[in-house]
């Protein structure tokens, strides 16, 4: 994809790209390069002496039960957020696609949570589930459930999953709705004439045709849970109780800024970097260019 007609100018194109390239170099490439460099050095407790340690930081991490636990927690958390955000969105989108009147009104009423910051979403949920004053916590207690997410790791995990998934439903809803609207109505009508009921039509026609959208959204949701929900964790649990919600991104922050362990934090950054590379490649190579039937 190139233009046939272009302009001739020796200096101008460089001037035009320079702001973008400068910002990219100073704030992306240099820091990422430094993370890689730091990851092969070790600092003593006082930060005075720095030694080259090769891959020791990585080997240490891969043998560190805390790190492996955080890794497992992150995978579980990401999958749970993706599933919890995809299923309600799909149901709502299928229903909204089916209504003859008012589909736009429903759309407006469902898309706004996208604009709520993850940290703010976290605070909304913290208040509802606060063991002392939260309304849902009061309901749970009335139902006989001993609710205290500050002490119970599983409850804390459930809370951050819901808070993170809540604001992502609108995003998924929009893409599912677009995908559904791209499915030719004649196809569904033909199945109806053949006697297929609504459930049958959904599982044998709509869902398979929607699979590119679903796969695309699954990847986007995992990436979102992995990297964009730092605010949820920081506002709701601070990674606790006892590390039960300590996802990788939070651990990098915590070890680097609170624990001041430069080498380990950098090695963790590099591992995250590799994960992003893999996810990006998956997204670009295997995810269909969305809804083109």
């Amino acid at each position: 994809m190139h233009k046939r007609v272009t302009f001739d100018n020796k200096l101008l194109p460089y001037l035009l790209v320079s702001p973008q390239i400068l910002v990219t170099l100073v704030f992306f490439f240099i820091p990422a390069g430094e993370a890689v460099v730091y990851s092969v050095f070790s600092q003593d407790a006082f930060g005075i002496e720095i030694n080259f340690v090769g891959l020791d930081n990585f080997l240490f991490l891969l043998n560190d039960p805390h790190y492996l636990r955080s890794f497992g927690i992150t995978v579980f958390y990401s999958v749970a957020v993706a599933v919890s955000a995809l299923i309600p969105a799909l149901i709502l989108a299928v229903l909204a696609d089916g209504v003859a009147k008012g589909a736009t009104v429903y759309k407006t009423l469902l898309i706004w949570p996208y604009a709520v910051a993850p940290a703010v979403a976290g605070v909304l949920w913290v208040f509802m589930f606060n063991p002392a004053v939260g309304i849902v916590a009061q309901w749970l207690r009335a139902a006989g459930i001993d609710w205290n997410y500050k002490l119970d790791g599983d409850q804390a995990m459930a809370l951050v999953i819901f808070a993170a998934a809540w604001k992502q439903i609108s995003y998924n809803f929009l893409f599912f709705l677009a995908g559904l609207q791209a499915i030719p109505k004649s196809l569904i009508e033909a199945a109806a004439i053949d006697g297929a009921g609504p459930m049958r039509r959904f599982f044998t026609i709509i869902l398979p045709l929607l699979s590119p959208t679903t796969f695309f959204l699954a990847v986007v949701n995992m990436v979102y849970a992995f990297f964009d929900t730092f605010g949820v964790i920081h506002a709701v649990t601070l990674g606790g109780p006892a590390g039960a919600t300590n996802i990788l991104v939070y651990k990098v922050f915590n070890d680097g800024f609170i624990g001041l362990d430069l080498g380990s934090s950098s090695a963790q950054s590099v591992i995250l970097l590799l994960i992003v590379v893999v996810l990006t490649v998956v997204q670009f190579r295997y995810v269909e260019r969305k809804v083109q039937y």
Binding site: F227, V252, G256, S266, S269
Partner: peptide, 14 residues
């Protein structure tokens, strides 16, 4: 491929 989260510390130092 380089979200802030993966280069927190060095970007802060810059």
């Amino acid at each position: 491929m380089l979200p802030v989260e993966v280069r927190i510390l060095p970007t802060y130092q810059v």
